[in-house]
């Protein structure tokens, strides 16, 4: 089996995550959409810490800003923090079972949601704060499956 070079696989998963972020959903599900991009960035930051650093997270954040029409730099800032937490914890994280990993993911994504909420507040977009954190919970529950899927992608397509 010919293996793809790793940047293509990583970029493809990020592309899918970006598409899922803006894919149409029924209106009741909008506030519950998982944080696809943050989850993907988190995975690559713990799986390839020496290659996928904060700089890439930042760049992905800028794309996400343009796609969602938020203030330029908001998602870049939030994703930089996610990648940083991932890089700091990746060695410890490998020791833990998946459900404990979910808690760390929840912490990183909670910070992510908070930063976005805070920037939204600075630009006077008020919203009910609690609903803003619903996607964090959903993403935590999804983490084991995301992890499994992206690990399969990595084992198949990424050289180590």
């Amino acid at each position: 089996m010919r293996r793809l070079s790793s940047p293509v696989a990583v970029m493809a998963t990020l592309f899918i995550a970006l598409a899922l972020t803006v894919a149409p959903l029924p209106s009741w599900a909008l506030a519950l959409r998982p944080l696809w991009v943050a989850l993907t960035v988190y995975y690559w930051a713990i799986a390839l810490p020496e290659r996928f650093g904060v700089g890439y997270a930042w760049l992905v954040g800028l794309f996400l800003d343009v796609l969602t029409g938020s203030l330029f730099g908001a998602h870049a800032l939030a994703l930089t923090l996610v990648a940083f937490i991932a890089a700091r914890t990746h060695l410890k994280l490998r020791m833990h079972p998946l459900w404990q990993q979910s808690l760390t993911v929840g912490f990183a994504l909670g910070l992510y949601a908070f930063v976005l909420f805070w920037i939204g507040g600075l630009t006077h977009q008020m919203s009910r704060p609690l609903i803003r954190f619903a996607p964090v919970g959903i993403s935590m529950l999804l983490w084991p499956w995301i992890y499994g899927f992206l690990r399969a992608v990595r084992r198949r397509y990424v050289h180590t």
Binding site: A57, W58, G73, A76, L77, T80, L81, I119
Partner: peptide, 10 residues
Amino acid sequence: FFIAAAITLL
């Protein structure tokens, strides 16, 4: 560095 860059952009 990247946080500073993001805040500058914001």
